[in-house]
Design a protein around this nucleic acid. Structure first.
Lengths: 372, 372
DNA sequence: TTGAAAGCGCTAACAG
DNA sequence: CTGTTAGCGCTTTCAA
C-alpha cells in the first residue's frame, strides 16, 4: 500500500494525515493529536505551530481511524418510520440542531413505512458499531431489539411517545386528548365524532391508542358517548382525513356537530373536504386536531399544540450527556402541550346543519347519542 | 488495552470481533472477512459454518475498522439548508430509499437556515473522511467549496436546481414557470401578480430567479407586463404567502385577477388568506403554484408538479454508480414536470371581484397593465 | 511537555 | 480455497 509520503507526493488524494502534519511541524503524531483536539499537555508555542501547519495542509482527522482507536464514532443514529411527516421532520430538525452544536453527526435510518426494512436495518448495517447512541422516533421496539441495544450498551431514547421499558419523551397524549375533548364539550357539543389514526407500520405503538382513550374517557366522564358509526379510522395523513369526512357524511343517520381528530393532518383533510362539500366549519361542524402543524395557524385550526423540535433536542441532549459520562441522564420526560383555540371550533348551531338536508340525511339530533 | 478475548470474557461490551469469529470457527480472519462479505474464494462448507458462528456471536463488522482499511465509509452525506420544508424532506426520503437499498448510510447535515453553520460544517467535521460522496440539496456551492471537494476527489451532485460547474438534477424551472404563466394567460388573465421567493440563506441560488424569469418572459412574449407593485416577495413558506396576499390586497389601486406563486406553500398561504378575507378563489382570483406539495391536491391547487423523491433517488443512484467504478455516472439531468389543473384557476370573471369593493379599493381594470 | 510504541478491527496482497 | 502478514490513521499509555 502507498505510504503516507507517497500519497502526499501524488496529489494527496485522501488529504493530509496526522503523520504529514507531525512531520511538517517537526513533532510526533501524539503531540499533533493532542494539539488538534485541544487537549492539555502541549506548550502554547507547539500548539500554535501545529495548528498553523495543520491548517495549511488542510488536515482533518479521519473519523474511521479515530473511531477505531477510541471506539466512538461521534455519530448518533435516528431511526424513523417516516421522514416526510410533520412530527418526524420537525423532530429531526431538533436532533440535528443539538447534535451539530456539539460536533456530532446524525445518521438517518428511515423505514419509509416498510415493515421489512426494519429487521434488516436493525440487526445489520445499522446500529452496531456505527453509532454511539440511538434516538427512535415514535416507534416501539421489540423486547429483542431492546435487549440487543442493551447488550451493545448504547444509550437509547424514544421521542414521540411512551414505550414500555424504555426512556421516552413526549407529550401526555392522554391528557391532550382529554383537553381537546373537554373543549368541545364545554362549547356545548354532545354529538362528537372521532377520527383516529392507526398506523400500519408501527406495530403496537401506543400514541394513537392513548389519544382515543383520552377522548373516550372524557366523553364517558361527562356522561356522553359516541355511536360506533362515528368512529372513523384514518392513517394520520391529509388524504385519510378527506376520506374520513366523506365516509362520515355519506353514512345515513344524524350527523355530528363536532369532530375530534387525533392529528392535525387528518383534521385539515376533513376540514378541506367539509368545505368542498359545503359543510361550514365551525357553524355546521366544529373540528379540533392535535399537533399544531405548520399549516394549522394558516388554516385557523383549533388544536392542542406540541413542539417536536424541542422534544428532539431534549432527547438528543440526554443522549449526549449520557455519552459524556453523566450516567442517568437519559430518562423519561413529559413534554408540554397546550390548547390553542382558533377558528374551527364554536358552539353547535341551534339550527340543524344545512348539509344534513342537502345530503338528504336525517338531521342530527341534539340529545346525547345512546350509550353503546 | 484489553485484548479481544478478554473483552469477550467480560461481557463482550463492544460485540464480537472478527477474530472471535475466526477463532470460534477455526479459520483465519481473512476467511471470515471474505465469507461475511459474500466474496468468492470460500468453500460453501466453510462459508456456511462461518456464517452460522457469526450469527451466534452476533458479529457485525466495525464500520470504523473497515472504513479505515478500505478508505470507504459506505456513507454518503446529504447537505440541506432545511429539513422541514417540502422539497427537502421529500428528496431526503428518496435518497434514503436508494441508499439503504444498496447498504449505504445517510449522514444528514442540516444548515437549519443558519448561515454561520455552513463554513464550520463544510470545512471541518463534515465532508472530509466521513463520507464517500456528497449530495447537496438546493444550494449553490462556492468555487472554493467545489475545489475542496474535487481535491478530496469525492463525487458530488446537486439536487433541486442548477449550479454552475456542478452536475445537478432538477426540473427545468424556467420552463415550468412559463407553462404556469401560459396557463393563466390562456385562461384569459392579463392582470397577473407575482409572488416570488427569495431565500435568505441560500446565497445566490438560481431556482427562485429562474422561476421569476420564466414568468416575466412569458408575460412579455405574450405582450403583457406587470406593474411593479404586484411583484411581491415571500420566502417559500405558508406564512409568507399569507402576508403576501395581505400586502397585495391592502395596496391601493386595481387588483390582479390571477396570482402566480413560485411555490405551492406560498400559493396555499395566499389562498387561505384570500378565503379568510372573502376573496373567492378562483372566481375573484386565480392562483397557481409550483411543486405539487402534499396538500395541493386536498386544497385543489392548480400547480406544476415535480417529484423530489425521484430526484433524490436519481442523484443517489448516480453517486453510487460512480463509487461503484462507473466513472461519468454523475451528470446533469432534467427531471420532468407537468401542469396539473385543479380548482384554483379559471377564466377571469367579467364582473369585478366583490372584494375590490369591499376593501374600498379601485376595481381592477381589464386592460393590460402599462408596460414598465 | 513531548515522543515511542502498541494497538483498535478489518482488508488486501501474496503465498501456499 | 485458505492463511500470513502488513498496514489503514489515530489514540493512548508509559517513559523520558
Amino acid at each position: 500500500m502507498a505510504k503516507t509520503s507517497e500519497r502526499s507526493q501524488r496529489g494527496g488524494h485522501a488529504g493530509a494525515s496526522i503523520e504529514d502534519v507531525a512531520k511538517a511541524a517537526g513533532v510526533s503524531t501524539a503531540t499533533v493529536s493532542r494539539a488538534v483536539r485541544g487537549l492539555p499537555r502541549v506548550s502554547p508555542a507547539t500548539r500554535e505551530k501545529i495548528l498553523r501547519v495543520a491548517g495549511e495542509l488542510g488536515y482533518v482527522a479521519s473519523s474511521s481511524a479515530s473511531g477505531l482507536a477510541t471506539g466512538r464514532t461521534r455519530t448518533i443514529g435516528v431511526l424513523a418510520p417516516y421522514v416526510d411527516r410533520w412530527f418526524f421532520f420537525k423532530a429531526i430538525e431538533g436532533v440535528d440542531r443539538e447534535l451539530h452544536a456539539r460536533g456530532y453527526n446524525l445518521s438517518l435510518f428511515n423505514l419509509g413505512g416498510q415493515r421489512g426494512a426494519r429487521e434488516r436495518l436493525f440487526s445489520k448495517t445499522m446500529v452496531y458499531k456505527q453509532i454511539d447512541a440511538l434516538l427512535v422516533l415514535c416507534m416501539s421496539l421489540t423486547s429483542e431489539e431492546i435487549a440487543d441495544l442493551q447488550r451493545i450498551d448504547i444509550p437509547l431514547v424514544i421521542v414521540g411517545g411512551p414505550v414500555e421499558d424504555c426512556p421516552s419523551i413526549g407529550i401526555d397524549d392522554y391528557a391532550a386528548s382529554v383537553e381537546a375533548t373537554m373543549h368541545l364539550l364545554n362549547l356545548g357539543h354532545r354529538e362528537i365524532a372521532l377520527l383516529h389514526g392507526q398506523d400500519d407500520s408501527d406495530l403496537n405503538f401506543t400514541v394513537p391508542r392513548l389519544r382515543v382513550d383520552g377522548f373516550t374517557d372524557a366523553m364517558t366522564s361527562a356522561g356522553f358517548s359516541m355511536p360506533p358509526e362515528w368512529d372513523i379510522f384514518g392513517n394520520f395523513t391529509v388524504g385519510s382525513g378527506q376520506q374520513a369526512f366523506d365516509e362520515l357524511w355519506n353514512k345515513p343517520g344524524p350527523k355530528p356537530t363536532a369532530l375530534f381528530c387525533a392529528s392535525d393532518e387528518m383534521a385539515m383533510g376533513a376540514m378541506l373536504q367539509a368545505r368542498r362539500r359545503g359543510v361550514r366549519v365551525p357553524e355546521d361542524l366544529s373540528i379540533i386536531g392535535i399537533d399544531n402543524h405548520e399549516f394549522a395557524e394558516a388554516m385557523g385550526l383549533t388544536t392542542v399544540a406540541q413542539d417536536p423540535v424541542e422534544q428532539g433536542q431534549l432527547g438528543t441532549r440526554m443522549l449526549l450527556d449520557e455519552l459524556g459520562g453523566a450516567a442517568g441522564s437519559v430518562r423519561s420526560m413529559k413534554a408540554p402541550h397546550r390548547l390553542i383555540i382558533r377558528e374551527t371550533t364554536a358552539p353547535p348551531c341551534a339550527a340543524p346543519p344545512a348539509e344534513a338536508h342537502r345530503t338528504g340525511q336525517n338531521q342530527a339530533t341534539r340529545k346525547p347519542a345512546p350509550t353503546a
